[in-house]
């Protein structure tokens, strides 16, 4: 059934990127259509220029931290089921290249991604699996995508998405994969809600083509709070 676990993990991480973090892979259209006439600078419409500027401004605000701690609740609303699956956990990030994703409920699971390796552990197998980044270009790509998302380099998103501003306060931006985007087959749209101070994300909502919806709500987010090495340990007792 699962013949090649390494390949599986690669795909999983790639999909995570595509589905959770990859607005970076998508290109936006602002408030209207990115296919607007070339009446702005660089062949972009005025609306597109406006959105590009907004993404740049937001990116600057979001990128202004060295470390991050946040709790999250992930809800998966599956079209086939009446009830949602709810996962709870914590994310730690330390720039330039350390990210830890810990799930606490309903199962304990941790993955730590650095510039060199990915390590993951779960309580059921109680095994730590380590994957080298240098030997896995695909993971390198994943880390790049993660860093784009978390560091606020949102300008890169314009190429593969249609971007719309759904609301100004709090700021809500919708990314719809365009025809160039490989995520288009799976993802209908990704909506990002920013905190009131616009320094970080409050919510990510992903609408899939299947009718499933995934929502990630961030809470207790602390920017530039001290981070401990233990936050980046995968094995838990």
């Amino acid at each position: 059934m699962v013949k090649n676990k390494m390949e599986m993990k690669k795909t999983i991480v790639l999909l995570i990127v595509l589905s959770l973090f990859s607005p970076a892979v998508i290109a936006p259209r602002a408030g209207g259509e990115t296919k607007g006439g070339p009446d702005g600078k660089n062949g972009l419409s005025a609306k597109e220029v406006e959105i590009q500027e907004l993404l740049r401004t937001i990116g600057e605000k979001v990128s202004g931290f060295k470390s991050l701690k946040t709790d999250f609740v992930q809800e998966k609303d599956l079209a086939m089921f009446k009830k949602k699956i709810v996962l709870r956990g914590r994310i730690y990030m330390q720039k330039p290249n350390r990210l830890a994703w810990h799930v606490d409920k309903p199962v304990k699971y941790s993955v730590v991604i650095t510039d060199k390796a990915i390590r993951q552990w779960d309580e059921d197998t109680n095994q730590v699996q380590e994957l080298s980044l240098s030997k896995n270009p695909i993971f390198k790509n994943v880390v790049n995508q993660l860093s784009v998302w978390f560091s606020g380099e949102y300008g890169a998103l314009m190429a593969d998405n249609t971007v719309s501003v759904l609301q100004q306060h709090p700021l809500i931006i919708e990314f719809v994969p365009n025809e160039k985007n490989i995520a288009r087959k799976m993802i209908r749209s990704i909506t990002i809600t920013f905190r009131d101070d616009e320094k970080y994300l409050k919510k990510i909502k992903i609408h899939e083509m299947s009718g499933d919806t995934t929502t990630l709500d961030f809470s207790n987010t602390l920017l530039d709070a001290p981070v401990e090495n233990s936050f980046f340990e995968v094995r838990r007792v």
């Binding site: 999983i12 999909l15 998966k76 699956i85 996962l87 699971y109």
Partner: peptide, 17 residues
């Protein structure tokens, strides 16, 4: 029976009916 399996980060692996 309907079954869905996801990984621990919430990514859907398979779905059966």
């Amino acid at each position: 029976c309907n079954l869905v399996s996801i990984n621990q980060m919430g990514v859907k692996l398979f779905e059966l009916s």
